[in-house]
Computed example of a mutant assay.
Amino acid sequence: MIRPSMSRRRLLGLAAGLGLGTAALGLMTGCARGGAEAEVVVSFNDLSQPFFVAMRRELEDEAAKLGVKVQVLDAQNNSSKQISDLQAAAVQGAKVVIVAPTDSKALAGAADDLVEQGVAVISVDRNIAGGKTAVPHVGADNVAGGRAMADWVVKTYPAGARVVVITNDPGSSSSIERVKGVHDGLAAGGPAFKIVTEQTANSKRDQALTVTQNILTSMRDTPPDVILCLNDDMAMGALEAVRAAGLDSAKVKVIGFDAIPEALARIKAGEMVATVEQNPGLQIRTALRQAVDKIKSGAALKSVSLKPVLITSGNLTEASRIGEMK
């Protein structure tokens, strides 16, 4: 069995001893083949999520502007696959790896191994924690984003509110931090602001639909005032559940996180009250620019924290302005 910490030289030596070529070696290590080797490898948590689809689009646009070849890998929300992909990236000669981790702690060992092999690592959207070497991170302040959602509730319902929280991927820093922001903000509002239930839908629209349907069924006589969804895809599922339950979206309000185009359209139509913009484009473009500078000049990778913005019908133009920040 090939150990995660095994160096490129030792892996190649093993392959030679077994009579294997580098292509076979790539298959042994679970590498996602994508053409010629690239100096920058980007591993996304889950490319079935609209947020990461948007981030990939921005990545490819920035790569074209910078004239750099980038290999994109999809972890499919599987930590084991993502670890295997990162091991293979080192074997294939990547100089910088940009990663949106499936799980903040599960990827720590793989990041340490990359650094030990001379491969620089920087995370986006979700950070990597618990490793021997701190990994620079480019992303929004998720605690502040969650707090913005809660602050909206406190301001809109001064007498108090019953709140449902639908969380995103368990174990991810984004989920942990957004939940903290929501809890802190509601607690600051006082005991009249109650989280009546908190459940995960794993960042999936269909799961959020089912979870919200079950919640609304159990609370038929006393529906919640607000449903806080910690990503927009789940918010779309929650909106469908509210509609299917025969409830007015003005009575049971839904807030999302990510400011995907569909969410902004729902806000404009008056079906959804707010979402949090965390600018995936600026995140990935900033990380890629740092990666290229690292390769060209040896410049150190640095953490960058972006301020999230709560988008409502009152500042929809702000979402367009933020999207142009590249």
Score class of each variant (00 low, 15 high):
A100R: 11
A100G: 13
P101H: 02
D103K: 05
A106D: 04
L107A: 12
A108V: 06
G109E: 13
A110R: 09
A110Y: 04
A111V: 04
D112W: 07
D113K: 11
V115G: 07
G118T: 00
G118R: 02
G118M: 01
V119E: 04
I122P: 07
I122H: 10
V124N: 08
V124Q: 04
V124M: 08
N127Y: 15
N127M: 14
I128W: 08
A129T: 15
T133M: 13
T133C: 09
T133S: 12
A134D: 15
V135F: 05
V135C: 10
P136S: 03
V138A: 01
G139K: 11
G139E: 06
A140D: 01
D141R: 04
N142E: 10
V143M: 02
V143H: 05
G145I: 00
R147M: 11
M149N: 08
V153T: 01
V153W: 01
K155Y: 08
T156H: 09
T156R: 14
Y157R: 06
Y157C: 04
P158S: 05
G160E: 11
R162S: 13
I166T: 03
T167L: 12
N168H: 10
P170L: 04
P170D: 06
G171F: 05
G171Y: 12
S173A: 14
S174I: 10
S174F: 10
S175M: 15
S175C: 14
I176S: 15
E177C: 09
E177M: 12
R178P: 10
R178W: 07
V179M: 14
G181Y: 04
V182I: 14
G185E: 02
G185R: 03
L186Q: 00
L186S: 05
A187L: 12
A188D: 07
G189H: 05
G189C: 02
G190E: 10
K194D: 06
I195F: 09
V196G: 11
T200I: 03
T200W: 05
A201M: 00
A201T: 01
N202S: 12
N202F: 14
N202R: 14
K204C: 06
R205W: 02
Q207Y: 03
Q207S: 13
Q207F: 04
Q207C: 02
A208R: 02
A208M: 00
L209Y: 01
L209Q: 02
V211C: 08
V211Y: 07
T212Y: 03
T212R: 00
Q213F: 09
I215P: 09
T217W: 13
T217Y: 14
T217D: 15
T217A: 15
T217K: 15
S218Y: 13
R220L: 13
D221N: 14
D221E: 13
T222H: 15
T222A: 15
P224F: 08
D225F: 12
V226F: 01
I227N: 05
I227P: 07
I227V: 13
C229N: 10
C229E: 04
L230A: 00
N231L: 01
D232V: 01
D233K: 02
A235H: 00
A235Q: 03
M236Q: 12
A238V: 06
E240T: 08
A241V: 00
V242C: 01
V242R: 00
A244S: 11
